[in-house]
């Protein structure tokens, strides 16, 4: 456990050092969130009856999305890992007395959490004090808030577990760029990063919600904004747990096979 903690600490310090980058990131996300809200407001004003959730729920969704962007951004993968697989440095990592899947999993979690932790508070604090209707409203109830934290963590874990699969695939093909791109684009749309899933036609939404991508940001953001019913939330949490177990299991198998290949070929 201590090994993992020290990884975590190191990453956190490294993250902090980029203070200007962090500030710039926060400003960017503010602007992004604000413009996104303006888009939805324009649609809302044009036709409020077809809006699939309360306007304030959409606002909360967008602010939370910006605040926790670093948790769920699938395009932010670690180039270090891709490089070490490609140039064969991976052989050194395999020599360490620690499972490579676990190490990279915790490393990814740590990186995302440190970035997220640094960036979420400024956005959250300011968004809470904005004038209505741009204000980030508190969660519907204390229960919603607790469930939000749980699903936030599960969503992060599902995101990382999916990224681990992309890393794993890199062992087997020469150029991971294509896989990575298809994955990122698909994840972006299917997880509700482009527009929240309820804005899709009902049938499409139903199918997409069953996919692992929907277990990423879609669930925590909608739990927080209160745009899910009790039954929907139960189902969503169940799916998150199911996909997390499945993806971790699959990732570990792929890594086992890959490690054996590296050991045989000598990196």
């Amino acid at each position: 456990m201590k090994k993992y903690l020290s990884f975590f600490r190191l990453r956190f310090i490294m993250g902090l050092q980029y203070r200007a980058a962090a500030l710039a990131g926060i400003i960017t996300q503010f602007a992004w969130g604000f413009l996104e809200i303006m888009v939805f407001r324009a649609f809302y004003q044009t036709n409020p009856y077809d809006f699939p959730m309360d306007f304030s729920a959409a606002v909360s969704y967008i602010w939370m999305q910006q605040a926790f962007l670093a948790f769920f951004a699938t395009w932010q993968m670690e180039t270090e890992i891709f490089d070490s697989i490609r140039d064969g440095n991976i052989a050194y990592e395999l020599c360490r007395p620690i499972g490579i899947y676990h190490m990279w999993f915790s490393r990814n979690m740590a990186q995302r959490m440190s970035r997220g932790a640094l960036r979420c508070f400024p956005i959250l604090i300011v968004a809470v004090f904005l004038p209505r209707p741009f204000r980030l409203e508190p969660p519907a109830s204390f229960g919603h808030f607790v469930l939000f934290l749980v699903t936030l963590f599960l969503g992060l874990a599902v995101t990382v577990a999916s990224c681990m699969l992309v890393y794993a695939v890199t062992f087997f093909i020469i150029s991971p760029l294509g896989v990575r791109m298809v994955f990122t684009s698909a994840a972006d749309f299917l997880s509700g990063a482009v527009i929240p899933l309820p804005f899709l036609p009902a049938k499409i939404q139903y199918v997409i919600e069953l996919l692992p991508f929907a277990s990423m940001q879609n669930v925590p953001l909608r739990v927080y904004s209160g745009s899910m019913s009790m039954g929907e939330m139960e189902k969503a949490v169940f799916l998150q747990i199911f996909w997390l177990i499945f993806l971790v299991f699959l990732g570990q198998i792929l890594f086992k096979i890959a490690e054996r290949r590296v050991a045989v070929q000598g990196g």
């Binding site: 203070r19 990131g25 602007a31």
Partner: peptide, 8 residues
């Protein structure tokens, strides 16, 4: 540092 804000 921080030039990312130009992305906005």
């Amino acid at each position: 540092e921080g030039l990312e804000f130009m992305n906005v």
